[in-house]
């Protein structure tokens, strides 16, 4: 049972208020029609399934309904931080480059 900080509400609340919304920053192919079967399949079905630090989305479903980014460790369950999708994306991209 996590306590999660919603960056939109500015409040730390119990997990019950939130819904898990999958891996973060999966880009939808810009032109799906041009995506090959393999590319589209990759987008639809393939996930990182990371052991360790992982960028994921949570939605404050029983609160402000906003989707936001959470960096969570899938082994220790530690939450490094939560950000709006836009703020988180910068950090995410920086980490991906590193």
């Amino acid at each position: 049972m996590f306590q999660i900080h919603c960056p939109h509400c500015g409040a730390t609340r119990e997990e019950e208020e939130f819904s898990y919304a999958g891996e973060a920053y999966i880009a939808r192919p810009a032109k799906p029609e041009e995506a090959t079967e393999a590319e589209w399949g990759d987008y639809l079905f393939m996930r990182k399934n990371t052991r360790g630090w992982f960028w994921e989305q949570w939605q404050h479903t029983a609160g402000c309904r906003k989707v936001f980014a959470v960096k969570r460790n899938t082994v220790s369950y530690e939450i490094a931080g939560t950000w709006t999708l836009a703020e988180g994306k910068e950090l995410y991209l920086k980490e991906s480059e590193a």
Partner: peptide, 17 residues
Amino acid sequence: AARVLNWLERWHQTEWP
């Protein structure tokens, strides 16, 4: 009802803000 509202929100916020 609830699932669809979340669905709309997610696509709007994540893909087409």
